[in-house]
């Protein structure tokens, strides 16, 4: 009787959850970054990121709860802290991050919307709801700074947790490397930037190529750095796995000739990393060579954003599925 997993216990719902948590973390981090740099030049990116950040994660958390064997008992996660369980730490981290992201969203709402959120203190407030404004402009400015500073490390933690969840398991050699946390972290940041890039490309009148021009310049520059970081992780990932124990080395067969080869090399690396890197390099090279301004191109900007988003999804798909097929290997054949 042969034994081993015949079905994938973690499927598409978990893939979507890891993916959306990464996008949310990436968007929040970008928003927090844009809050602090440029002296207000990138306010629109900060606002865009703040307004969008909680929603992918909200969807992902729904998926996560639905994936449980007993979804109605998900609250059991929050009556205990298990220090050795990445999932327990991650659940708390995600809840905290969600809270901060929601506060950030409220702080970045355009004023007329923000004023709809009211916490009346007295009867007069209730009677005259339209005049009472709970948040002064100064409080909002300060609040944004504080929330960005608190939320930035939390967002990095959430992004890293999605990798640690898989990477901290010795029983699955394909996952069991510290580089998985970094890979998922930089991929999360990259997909967050790409989501904003895509929205920025779709924003405003299509006829005006200079709409959000310097914001797009910043996003493209960030994405180039992040994609390069991913390459700096993927290359040593392959080298280390190949030179590690036999179980690790053979787990690479899953993506080198095995069932996930085409998805990883064609989907994740070519379509999701190389192609967007080429497009973004083309947009940026006049600046890098000091020959002129960035080539603003709404179509290319949107396309590279879309490709990075597809690549990020496929990355999580490949890792979640392939990792479940990897095992310790029994004694060596002679």
């Amino acid at each position: 009787m042969e034994h081993g997993h015949t079905v994938f216990e973690w499927g598409l719902l978990v893939v979507i959850y890891l993916y959306t948590a990464g996008i949310s973390a990436g968007m929040f981090a970008t928003s927090a970054f844009a809050t602090y740099v440029g002296g207000g030049r990138y306010r629109r990116i900060a606002r865009l990121g703040a307004l969008l950040a909680p929603w992918p994660l909200a969807l992902g958390l729904g998926m996560l709860v639905l994936d449980l064997g007993r979804p109605l008992y998900f609250w059991k996660l929050f009556v205990t802290i298990q220090p050795t369980s990445p999932m327990s730490i991650g659940s708390w981290l995600l809840s905290l991050f969600m809270l901060v992201a929601m506060i950030n969203l409220i702080l970045w709402l355009p004023r007329p919307w923000r004023n709809l959120i009211k916490f009346p203190h007295s009867r007069a407030d209730v009677r005259d709801r339209l005049r009472w404004q709970p948040l002064t402009a100064r409080m909002v400015r300060m609040g944004r700074g504080v929330v960005a500073a608190i939320g930035f490390p939390l967002s990095l933690g959430v992004a890293m947790y999605t990798g640690i969840l898989l990477g901290a398991i010795p029983g699955r050699p394909f996952w069991n490397t510290p580089m998985l946390a970094q890979l998922f972290l930089f991929s999360a940041m990259s997909t967050g930037v790409a989501a904003l890039l895509l929205v920025a490309a779709l924003w405003g009148r299509i006829s005006d190529p200079h709409e959000l021009a310097h914001e797009r310049h910043m996003l493209v520059s960030m994405d180039v750095v992040l994609i390069l970081m991913e390459f700096f992780i993927i290359i040593p990932f392959f080298l280390h796995q190949a030179l590690n124990t036999r179980s690790s080395a053979e787990s690479l067969n899953l993506v080198m000739g095995g069932p996930y080869t085409a998805l990883l090399w064609g989907g994740v690396i070519s379509l999701g990393l190389l192609l967007p890197l080429l497009i973004e390099g083309y947009e940026l090279y006049p600046v890098a060579l000091k020959e002129g301004a960035v080539k603003y191109n709404r179509l290319l900007g949107g396309l590279s954003g879309l490709l990075v988003l597809i690549g990020g999804f496929l990355l999580r798909y490949v890792f979640v599925y392939a990792g479940q097929l990897s095992h310790f290997l029994p004694v060596l054949p002679r």
Binding site: H5, G69, R70, Y73, S85, I169, P170, G171, H327, F328
Partner: peptide, 27 residues
């Protein structure tokens, strides 16, 4: 009573000794 059926333990077990009981929603 405390198992929520997340199946993380099934990922962690190098022996694949655990199974998911679909009817009860627990491992």
């Amino acid at each position: 009573d405390d198992c929520i059926g997340c199946r993380y333990c099934m990922m962690a077990c190098p022996y694949d000794a655990r199974y998911f009981d679909e009817d009860r929603g627990v491992v």
